[in-house]
Design a protein around this nucleic acid. Structure first.
Lengths: 108, 108
DNA sequence: CAGGATCCTTTACGATACTG
DNA sequence: CAGTATCGTAAAGGATCCTG
């Protein structure tokens, strides 16, 4: 029988946050959700033209799972689903602000 | 002759910052550099036990290249090299603070 | 001690076709 | 419209051995 791998991942706030918002797209999506009330998938696609559909859906699912975004299914036909920022998700606003501020300082 | 790929990566401050500090290790390393005056490679290895040597060296090189960290070679034998935060690198301090703050809020 | 070079595995990401 | 499913490629990350 194979040994079980034991992952002793050192936990710290920086890594926690990195995991929650890491990757190429999560922050970009959250930024859109923060600046709009509700967004449909097709609207997000339009707002982020260079994301692939697969990634958009996949990352939205993760954001919802981690309670950073909300998903509302209107149960209509044709399907209507609205994504929005969650209460927890609101808390990344100052973080994004800092990232913008950092980029500005960096580029001087 | 093959067509040349043209990358029209939409530029924005969020993506700029993401690229500069993205990945599993850059922020962890910067955090150590921020909280110490100078650090040798071996000291960083000790402070971040779960990083591989390859990644540590590779990420340090990128951080230095992007002027977020400084590298000083003392030209001694045995080799002595000291890494430290750069002026530009100092600017991620508030960002890291926000990340810690976010993790705390998130975990409530 | 610092780090180069190599090989390998895993994950991230993307393109496309299909479905209720 | 909002997804699933599948298949590729590219990039990230890790283990190990080697060197001045």
């Amino acid at each position: 029988m194979k040994e079980e791998k034991i992952y002793v991942t050192p936990r710290c706030p920086i890594r926690t946050t990195s995991e929650l918002i890491g990757g190429k797209w999560k922050l970009v999506i959250l930024q859109q959700l923060l600046t709009h009330d509700e967004l449909r998938l097709s609207e997000l696609k339009r707002l982020i033209p260079d994301i692939s559909e697969k990634m958009l859906i996949q990352e939205l699912k993760i954001l919802v799972m981690n309670d950073l975004a909300k998903r509302k299914d209107y149960d209509e036909f044709p399907p209507r689903v609205a994504y929005s920022i969650s209460d927890r998700g609101q808390h990344i606003a100052p973080l994004i602000k800092e990232m913008v501020s950092f980029a500005q300082k960096y580029e001087q």
